[in-house]
Amino acid sequence: MSVTILPFLLALVLLLIGLYVIIAKKNIIKIILGVAIVEYAINLFLVLLGYRAGAAAPIRTPEQTDAAVFASGAVDPLPQALILTAIVIGLGCLALLVSLAVRLHERFGTFDMTRIRELKG
């Protein structure tokens, strides 16, 4: 599996950017974007796991009788199946976050997390 290290570094950088945004930013919308970036970073990482340079799509035709040969020449389809699920879950989370943000803005009149601070102790 000759994948260069570079795309994995990109996933790592994305993950760190996302975590930084979640921790450092005060604006609710920016925090939501941070959550989305973290999810994308993980999805990118998962799809890279299944990637093989120069390999075919994992769809087997009747001519390809030798399964082992076929398998060695195709990318791994499992991570792709996993990400599809993860993307849907991420979408659900994101939609919930955005609707919470709308409601928070209705109640507090601001997106600033430092001014939404009734719970403490």
Binding site: I22, L46, A101, L119
Partner: peptide
């Protein structure tokens, strides 16, 4: 709403960690 927002943000980060570990 405030509590739920914090909960969702931290919850999604923790889920991302779990997914990364599974990968």
């Amino acid at each position: 709403l405030e509590a739920a927002f914090k909960y969702v943000v931290l919850g999604s980060v923790s889920s991302s960690f779990v997914l990364l570990a599974i990968g």
